[in-house]
Design a protein around this nucleic acid. Structure first.
Lengths: 204, 204
DNA sequence: TGTACATCAGTGAACGCGCGTTCACTGATGTAC
DNA sequence: TGTACATCAGTGAACGCGCGTTCACTGATGTAC
């Protein structure tokens, strides 16, 4: 658990430790999946530094955690954008976002949990960063609805999408269900059932 | 936080404390929503008793928590059954279960979270108790599918229902979303979109 | 009916641990003269 | 070019706290005789 002692930064490069501490906190978020389980001492130890060194860069434990969570939100949003930007077609873009969402949640369940199931109040940044990701979803949904000639409220439909996809990754990610369908299958169902899949043939 | 000291049980009635400790643990589950936040000392204190008294009734901290969680599962299952038993019609029964599920999750978010998002491994009982509730859902879904002449696999459709409803209550329960739709509206959508609502008129 | 006593339902002090935070400090290094 | 010194990037000891668990104990109460 405890890392080897970190080499002291050269003069003028003290800010490097700040970065290393945030990295260490991110690692622990991924491992523990809960902010309460991430002590200041464990972060310092992971970074190879004494607990007191933290106070040279952060006001206290909470401020360090807050900034680590902010970083995690940025990473999540960037991941989503990447999944979207790979496509031009509105259906593929929405599906790209969905795949990216699921990939993040499944490959980093600890971080996903900290982002979406955190119990500790860290202030406003959580709401704001989450809102940015949600607005992206609204835009993607709106494009698909437009293409399908569907006049439902994109914001309402986006809520349907988000609740369902969150339920899928939270239940599949938190516990193993040996006999459950593939996540990809569930995503297909989600798109089809909510009416966001590409219409391949004419309806009746 | 600390309760007044409990009156000592009469001779031969020592088992009463066991019950009181489980009640205290349930209260703390409801308040904290996380098992790690529930210390043995806090349970004893809530029950108005010294920490050491716990050891007269439970092997250790973990055994006490385990039994408290088992109780909570029973309570949840009983609540669901109640919601189902109030109706005869398969659509109403399924909807009754859904309403009961949501009512439990919204009125006892801490307990719901302990049941469905717990990170601590307590052994097998979680899987088993959860499985019982899931089998109930499968039966309810099967009845509706039969009535609708829908030949989809009830188990598969039940997964769709469970993932979505969990996402709804987890996102709505964990954080407040000022501008979100009503939960009842989301449940209506769930039933309609997954194809489990009562067919009120003929389709094309 | 009276009393000695075993049992029951707990208590209280103590242990070693990790926690967040504080304080005074250390030792290397770049810079001013 | 040499050196005194301010600054930087940390360290280490200590604090009071709550934790799970152990141990020896206490005092009321029912029961056997």
């Amino acid at each position: 658990m405890t890392q080897a002692r970190r080499a002291r930064s050269r003069r003028g490069e003290g800010e490097q430790l700040r970065d290393d501490l945030l990295d260490a906190a991110a690692e622990l978020m991924a491992e523990k999946g809960e902010l309460d389980a991430i002590s200041l001492r464990s972060i310092a130890s992971r970074a190879g530094v004494s607990p007191t060194a933290v106070y040279r860069h952060f006001d206290d434990h909470l401020h360090l955690l807050r900034e680590a969570v902010e970083r995690c939100w940025s990473q999540f949003a960037a991941h989503l954008l990447e999944g979207v930007a790979a496509h031009d077609d509105p259906y593929d873009r929405l599906r790209g976002a969905g795949d990216a969402y699921v990939r993040f949640a499944m490959s980093e369940p600890g971080k996903y949990r900290v982002l979406f199931s955190n119990r500790i109040d860290l202030g406003m940044q959580r709401v704001m960063a989450g809102a940015v990701a949600f607005e992206l979803l609204v835009d993607l949904v709106a494009a698909v609805l437009r293409d399908r000639g569907d006049d439902r409220d994109p914001r309402f439909v986006a809520v349907l999408v988000h609740t369902w996809i969150h339920g899928i990754v939270d239940l599949c990610g938190n516990h193993e269900h040996a006999d459950w369908p593939e996540v990809a299958t569930l995503l297909d169902q989600l798109a089809e059932r909510i009416g966001l899949n590409r219409p391949v043939e004419d309806r009746c």
